[in-house]
Design a protein around this nucleic acid. Structure first.
Lengths: 238, 238
DNA sequence: TCGGCTATTGGCCTATTGGGCAATGTCTCG
DNA sequence: CGAGACATTGCCCAATAGGCCAATAGCCGA
């Protein structure tokens, strides 16, 4: 039983066509869930509640959560376990913990695992609002870069292993002629690969190419995986 | 029977000419200080102790600390205050807290401020060792990038404002001709600036240039610094 | 075995870059 | 005012990069 209540009560000011952030809240205590929901709705957030971590994780559209508020102690999965599951799933949503009797080790573990805040009940309404606000703000900031990284990795995956080799050398500032000698090929060949790389990556210049690769953190993929077709979009580790 | 502590057992193996990390420890309790020192020394770390945060911060060579272990509660500055002071000073050393009666809010604050760990006394020897070890390892990893960033920023600072404008456009993938039109100058002029930028930044190609700028996170400096300039409709000369 | 994809090259031609040399202007600091 | 740093341009030339068209080859799935 999950009391899903998509916000619509507190109508977000229609003046701004912006997206209303949706906060997903998990707590086994119905009273807390209701209180938190009321609180967040007043702050113009959309809210979805879950009585357990299992229920949260079972949602097919969990990727759409903009912020996840977890209770630390719950029957079944604990908040930390839920957080871990989210991490493993590569979910980028910021996590905030709330706990009645949280201990230092737990809070430290949560923070080390990337939680953005850890509130102890009872907390002031403003504390939660501020935490959610900053969490979403931060998330917003990184989401753009995130998307670009994703797109770049996507395009990068289309590159041939040979093309990656050429790309690697290009990023080292070598010119066609040098690369040709290095790879034992004709300069013309390198030119072609180079051209293809730029086409595939959707850039029109070497500078743009280097920028996108660096920004997407794909430089590492080139270092070792010259022939391997691997390109994990790895990131997020703070 | 005879516990002959062979010196070589605890002494850093002379075989590796590597640097012995130095951990700076702050605690008002002499006993704790001694215990921690013994512990870290056994793990082959160099150690320097301080009875208060003020004493630590007063050290002229504080930049050389590889890891800083702070007690949370101390007369005078608290550990959190010391951490804050370190942050303001731009000190990159990783910080680890140890505390006897730490509370959740404090530990959360410490972690949010960038602490790498927060141990509660009493803790197992291995806990501290592991914390220090991973802290230093992480620090090591970022130090290289850190240094490069520093050098790049150094070189970057030598660029003229005009050169930065050109650089900015270059990173957007534009060619000399386009930039010339954009800035209302002759292509030759752009060529010259471009050449100077490459010379000053110590790179021989556009790709290298873009790479260094991105890696050093200097892209942002351009976004604003360049825009701050004026539009100069170029009709002013006449 | 054929068609499609990738790798490689050559030839040819145009567009861009990269630099050298020289000359003007502007500005700021002694 | 003169020295030095910066910004600008022109002319000229060599080196590269970019592309188009065409051709040879190896591999793989239908």
């Amino acid at each position: 039983m999950q009391h899903v209540m998509t916000a619509s009560a507190v109508t977000p000011s229609a003046e701004r066509a912006e997206f209303t952030p949706c906060v997903w809240v998990v707590d086994d205590d119905r009273a807390v869930l209701d209180a938190v929901t009321r609180l967040l709705r007043c702050a113009d957030y959309s809210v979805r509640t879950f009585a357990s971590g299992e229920l949260l994780l079972a949602q097919p559209d969990i990727e759409t959560a903009d912020c996840i508020v977890l209770d630390l102690r719950m029957p079944g999965m604990t908040g930390l376990e839920v957080q871990d599951a989210l991490l493993r799933a590569g979910n980028p949503a910021p996590v905030i913990f709330i706990s009645a009797r949280g201990d230092v080790p737990s809070s430290v573990q949560a923070m080390k695992a990337g939680a953005l805040d850890f509130l102890t009940k009872p907390f002031h309404a403003s504390e939660l609002i501020v935490a959610v606000q900053s969490a979403i703000a931060r998330s917003r900031l990184s989401s753009a870069a995130q998307a670009e990284r994703s797109r770049a990795a996507q395009l990068f995956s289309l590159l041939t292993s040979r093309e990656r080799e050429v790309l690697k050398q290009l990023l080292q500032g070598k010119r066609n002629k040098e690369i040709a000698k290095e790879l034992g090929a004709a300069e013309k060949t390198i030119k072609v690969h180079r051209s293809r790389v730029q086409q595939k990556m959707g850039v029109r210049s070497l500078a743009e190419l280097a920028s996108r690769i660096e920004r997407a953190g794909l430089r590492e993929c080139l270092g070792a995986a010259g022939a391997v077709g691997e390109f994990q979009t790895r990131e997020d580790a703070q």
